[in-house]
């Protein structure tokens, strides 16, 4: 039983990094495909489309930082805390990354027709980034209470 609890602890340490990587790859892929499509239809401004496609890449960085913060010797005492914080932070990052990718794709699709709304169209993606930052920051704050 103790081994299983310790395994969960390790899972919790690596989950934010792994799920963050999945989030960023899916999000960047969705937004990247949208930017490629938009490039076929527009005559210029390709750089900004590619720039938006990279927005969801931040989630893997948040995941790496959380992983390093949680990384410590796993014991039966702290495994539950590591598992809970790590897994839930990872799931939050996963959803934020995928949906930010979709929001970026929508922004690219809209701004290819009306370049003047480019900045405003990015607002939903920025708001989603904010939710990801909440999950990231509070994972760091709460992890301070887990025994080393």
């Amino acid at each position: 039983m103790t081994e299983f609890v310790i395994a969960l602890g390790w899972l919790g340490i690596f989950a934010p990094m792994a799920l963050g990587a999945v989030a960023s790859s899916i999000g960047c892929s969705i937004a990247g495909q949208a930017s490629i499509g938009a490039m076929l239809e527009t005559e210029g401004g390709y750089g900004r489309f590619v720039g938006i496609s990279a927005f969801p890449s931040t989630f893997v960085i948040y995941g790496i930082v959380i992983m390093f913060t949680l990384n410590r010797e796993v014991t039966a005492t702290n495994a539950g805390g590591l598992f809970g914080i790590g897994l839930l932070a990872g799931i939050a990052l996963l959803y934020c990354g995928i949906w930010q990718g979709r929001a970026c794709a929508a922004a690219i699709n809209a701004s290819k027709e009306k370049p003047e709304i480019f900045g405003l169209a990015l607002a939903p993606a920025a708001i989603i980034e904010g939710f990801g930052v909440f999950a990231f920051v509070f994972a760091l704050v709460v992890s301070a209470g887990i025994p080393a």
Binding site: S29, I30, Q33, S35, G37, A38, E41, G101, A105
Partner: peptide, 20 residues
């Protein structure tokens, strides 16, 4: 990638239907 994002590149490569 889910079915809902299957044709992202194709859809964004088309001019908006309102413009038609």
């Amino acid at each position: 990638m889910s079915d809902s994002d299957l044709y992202t590149a194709l859809v964004t490569s088309l001019p908006s239907s309102e413009r038609l």
